[in-house]
């Protein structure tokens, strides 16, 4: 095994064994994907929360329900989850109301429609969070696997040398440890982001649920 004094990152990666290189490439890909999803989830959850807040403000400012329904239906590309829940509930309510159904049926139908939309919205928000969670939990192990493999190679090389010194193993161990470093670099942001997003989605879904309850009360009042 050649003894190298040059321990820059580039040479460490270049001189690693094939399997360790594969592990590093896998981890780099995972890290890239997890960062991609971190940013995408960040933007989508942020915009969902912002739009829901905007809609809640205009809803409780006492506007006409019909006008709100019209604006929600016209600008469908730019609505938040709360507005879509309102739209589906109000659509179902007006349909059933036009059919002269009895009050309990009307409110139940509207509530079911809202519940369905709510579940779709939350599922959409939670999509790909599981990917972040598994990157966070698995990539340290993958990196550790690469490290163990690299250290095994380093010690096997040592067995051929008559006078063994630390200088014979040190470069191999350093190469191997790079794999763990990359694994940790992929895992830490993924775990942090997963916890953060899960918390945000929890809070948002609680808001959506309470809005659904309040809106069903308003619909029930309108029937009398």
């Amino acid at each position: 095994m050649p003894i190298t004094q040059d321990l820059s990152i580039l040479s460490l990666i270049a001189e690693a064994s094939l399997l360790v290189k594969l592990v590093m490439a896998l981890l780099a890909g995972l890290s890239f994907m997890s960062w991609y999803w971190i940013f995408r989830k960040w933007f989508s959850i942020g915009s969902a929360r912002r739009k829901s807040m905007d809609f809640e403000r205009s809803f409780w400012s006492g506007g006409d329900l019909n006008a709100l329904y019209q604006s929600a239906g016209n600008d469908r590309h730019n609505t938040g989850p709360m507005e879509r829940i309102f739209e589906s509930g109000y659509r179902e309510f007006s349909k059933l109301h036009a059919k002269k159904a009895d009050h309990a049926t009307v409110v139940d139908g509207a509530r079911r429609a809202m519940r369905a939309t709510y579940q779709r919205e939350v599922d959409e928000l939670e999509a790909h969070l599981a990917f972040l969670a598994s990157v966070g939990s698995v990539s340290p192990y993958v990196g550790l696997f690469g490290t163990v493999w690299g250290i095994m190679n380093a010690f096997r090389g040592l067995s051929n040398v008559t006078s063994a010194t630390l200088a014979h193993v040190a470069p191999g161990i350093a190469e191997a440890l790079v794999a763990t470093a990359i694994g940790l670099f992929a895992a830490i942001p993924a775990v942090v982001a997963y916890n953060r997003f899960a918390h945000d989605i929890d809070r948002l879904s609680i808001r959506l649920e309470s809005f659904m309850e309040e809106f069903s009360n308003i619909l029930q009042r309108q029937l009398r």
Partner: peptide, 11 residues
């Protein structure tokens, strides 16, 4: 889908 490209660039 919001922010597909920009997420890619940021990553």
């Amino acid at each position: 889908e919001p922010g597909k490209r920009i997420s890619f660039v940021l990553a």
